[in-house]
């Protein structure tokens, strides 16, 4: 358990709803769910979730902290916004899902091998380094996301396509070494640093 996690458990005791309200992006909306289930029925990936949104909201109210935060469910959200468009109560469900995922990630208790989580982190790291997504590096790190052997296998299977893209000048192997970036990399880093500070300050406040 991470420090932050223990801290939060200590702070909110049994009132998980209050914890979510305070710390999760758009978390104050969770109490407004009226359990109609339209979100769950509208979700194109619904059948693959352990707990559809409506159920997650109920679990939050029932204080099932561990189950919610370690669940892979909210990581399954593809941001199609079907649920948001249909929610009769106007809950920003997509944002709450991402908020929950982010919160679980910050607490360090999100499911370890969760693919979406891995991808999200890889993407973030890749992007923040230069301010632009380095597609070649991102692609390669995705190949090796699940281990070296799997990565080699995947890379070989994609070799043909890679060659084709190189021939048509759609992909430059030189990108692997640095690649292009935005003009003011330092400025970006400063912005991100400030954002993190604000987030932490907000956390301390509650």
């Amino acid at each position: 358990m991470s420090n932050l996690n223990t801290e939060m458990v200590e702070k909110y005791r049994n009132n998980f709803l209050q914890e979510v309200t305070a710390n999760v992006e758009e978390g104050e909306w969770v109490k407004m769910c009226m359990q109609c289930g339209v979100c769950s029925g509208s979700c194109p990936l619904g059948p693959y979730w352990d707990h559809p949104p409506q159920e997650l909201f109920m679990m939050i109210r029932a204080g099932k902290r561990e189950e919610v935060l370690t669940s892979s469910s909210m990581w399954m959200c593809t941001s199609c916004y079907n649920c948001v468009a249909r929610c009769p109560r106007g809950l920003p469900i997509t944002h709450i899902m991402h908020g929950l995922a982010h919160y679980a990630d910050r607490l360090g208790i999100a499911p370890k091998g969760q693919q979406t989580r891995k991808f999200a982190n890889l993407f973030w790291d890749n992007l923040t380094k230069t301010g632009r997504v380095n597609e070649l590096r991102l692609g390669i790190s995705l190949y090796f996301m699940n281990g070296f052997a799997a990565g080699v296998k995947k890379a070989l299977s994609m070799a043909g396509m890679g060659m084709g893209m190189m021939k048509t000048k759609r992909l430059s192997p030189m990108e692997y070494f640095g690649g292009h970036s935005i003009k003011d990399k330092k400025g970006l880093q400063a912005i991100l640093k400030k954002a993190k500070e604000i987030e932490l300050a907000k956390e301390q406040k509650f």
Binding site: K31, M32, R89
Partner: peptide, 14 residues
């Protein structure tokens, strides 16, 4: 009124 109840923090459990 229901919404106001939720907003005030009344927990509704089915």
């Amino acid at each position: 009124f229901y919404r106001s109840g939720q907003d005030k923090g009344v927990i509704f459990t089915k």
